[in-house]
């Protein structure tokens, strides 16, 4: 155990502080406050762990390229509406470079591409949504690498989940509380985008899964990077 005893109380203390501050200061906008704080706090542990590990220079630059290509890909495929390669790049990085790398690529892609598209209260939610999808794909790397069917399913589920998480944000943001009617309406109006996200994920993962996977595997083995990850 490298953690000293008082540090173990940091996360519960942070959660308690957030809840208390919300109850005292923002009683009417409690839900919006809590959800925003939750998105931020959910991103912190993995970011802190990454920082503590002080990764090798090669790992940093490889991850930076993956983050950059998922942001640049948004421009390259701009002629197809709602076609974002971010999820696919995140999932592929997670499958071959481990859950932590998946989280980092997903969360930082949201942050970096928002330097071009505009930062706002939605940034933590996007970071959390993409980071979480990457982390999960890293945990499921074995079935995802073996079967194309699982990869397709994950692409669909990722498009759906991303859309559902961002609609929660829209609802909380527009109403201050969670109004089910508004949420359903937001989901319905975002349906074309959701379908497009899921379809683009599947297309991307099916066509690029093989070649990109080989490239990442090759980099990993040839240069001995990302070896301490599961």
């Amino acid at each position: 155990m490298t953690c000293s005893s008082w540090k173990r109380f940091l996360v519960p203390a942070a959660v308690a502080a957030v809840v208390l501050a919300g109850a005292l200061l923002f009683p009417q906008q409690y839900y919006a406050w809590i959800s925003m704080a939750a998105a931020v706090i959910a991103c912190l542990p993995l970011l802190v762990r990454f920082e503590r590990r002080s990764p090798a220079a090669g790992e940093l630059t490889v991850l930076a390229v993956l983050v950059a290509i998922s942001s640049a890909g948004r421009f390259a495929f701009a002629w197809i509406p709602a076609f974002k390669p971010v999820t696919a790049v995140t999932v592929l990085s997670a499958m071959y470079l481990g859950p932590e790398s998946g989280f980092i690529v997903g969360a930082l892609s949201a942050l970096v591409s928002n330097f071009y598209f505009g930062q706002g209260p939605w940034t933590p939610f996007q970071m959390f949504a993409w980071g979480f999808l990457g982390f999960l794909a890293g945990l499921l790397s074995r079935p995802l690498q073996k079967s194309k069917a699982w990869l397709c399913l994950y692409g669909i589920w990722a498009g759906l989940l991303y859309s559902l998480i961002m609609d929660v944000w829209t609802t909380l943001w527009a109403d201050g509380t969670f109004v089910l009617g508004r949420y359903l309406a937001a989901c319905a109006s975002a349906l074309p985008f959701t379908v497009m996200y899921a379809a683009s994920n599947v297309v991307f993962l099916l066509i690029l899964g093989g070649p990109v996977g080989e490239k990442l595997q090759r980099i990993k083995e040839k240069y001995g990077l990302f070896q301490n990850q599961a």
Partner: peptide
């Protein structure tokens, strides 16, 4: 055709850039 072409470009750029990235990393080290 355009979509497949776009994906092929994407894949080529990725391998090019990954190789460069590793070299940058080694130079930094």
């Amino acid at each position: 055709d355009r979509l497949l072409g776009g994906l092929r470009v994407f894949s080529a750029v990725l391998s090019w850039s990954l190789e460069c990235a590793v070299e940058t990393g080694q130079a930094m080290k």
